[in-house]
Write a protein that binds this DNA or RNA. Sequence first.
DNA 1: TTTACACCACTAATTATTAGAGGTCTTCGC
DNA 2: GCGAAGACCTCTAATAATTAGTGGTGTAAA
Lengths: 164, 164
Amino acid sequence: MNNHEHVLVALRRVIRATDLHSKRLSKNAGLTGPQLLIMRTIRDLGEVTIGTIADKVSLSQATVTTILDRLEHRQLVYRVRSTQDKRKVHAHLTEGGADILSRAPNPLQEDFIKKFQSLHEWEQNMILASLQRVANMMDADDIDASPVLDVGPVLKDDGWKEKA
Amino acid sequence: MNNHEHVLVALRRVIRATDLHSKRLSKNAGLTGPQLLIMRTIRDLGEVTIGTIADKVSLSQATVTTILDRLEHRQLVYRVRSTQDKRKVHAHLTEGGADILSRAPNPLQEDFIKKFQSLHEWEQNMILASLQRVANMMDADDIDASPVLDVGPVLKDDGWKEKA
DNA sequence: TTTACACCACTAATTATTAGAGGTCTTCGC
DNA sequence: GCGAAGACCTCTAATAATTAGTGGTGTAAA
């Protein structure tokens, strides 16, 4: 991981911690930030492995796996194990998943990241430092968190994940 | 792995190198020694994972995987991925596989191993040393290798294993 | 005899999943 | 408001199977 990517990861963390964190979306909507992010990645990249998703969204494979478990249980995505390489698993959106996603607002994350990447390093560092100061000031929690997407009630734990 | 087990592994190697190695069986029959050994393990243990097979036959998981590939291609076994633990894969015999196996001679390997295990360690070591001497004398290759099992021609490489 | 090919077996690397631990946020009852 | 419960996120470490790569043996064909 080069220096550039470190900055990028930091930026993604900032985005997750502000715009798209679960505390914002889960208030009234059925999908959390990471869930939306992963579903968009699947939509945009087509047939995509768990490892590729993890790279794109800067999360561990283990985290992506557990999030996909929840999405699969709600029948928003499904998995297909590759026949070429049986280690790999491809994730796909179901019809319902694609439908819900099409009605979700686009946060322009990827555009933003692409533009950010085109900046000089000193510019990136300056922006990140500024964001840090902003984040420190945000404890007041006086920003409106209006509902973004409504796909029904949040998943209840009805024991769908049977233990071995 | 304790001392006892080391002896057992050595013994299995001796068995493979003499009675059941592929050079003996593949002459006229369709199944090699390791293939038979693995199929018997599946039959005797029922729903069994690759790791368990590898333990039982003292081979690496990787080796068992490749041998199962060939057996599966010949439709003698099939794999089912566990729903409880998606890392695991269960191997089963197909009807045809069970049929062929029922007509194969039983080499009494497991009986032999069990009896051997009941011996004192110095006895085991003595026997292994004797076997080693016998093995050194076997280069003459004057032992008849009569066909044991005939299930048709040996698998030809018709490109069934497509590369990624 | 040489050559090609199928097979065996290993180690190391790769991919996904699970276990376990720690954390945040929301809801529900008091 | 406060505390507990539940759903979720995230990580590291362990686990399971597969694949890549290497080297070897045996058989059959040229």
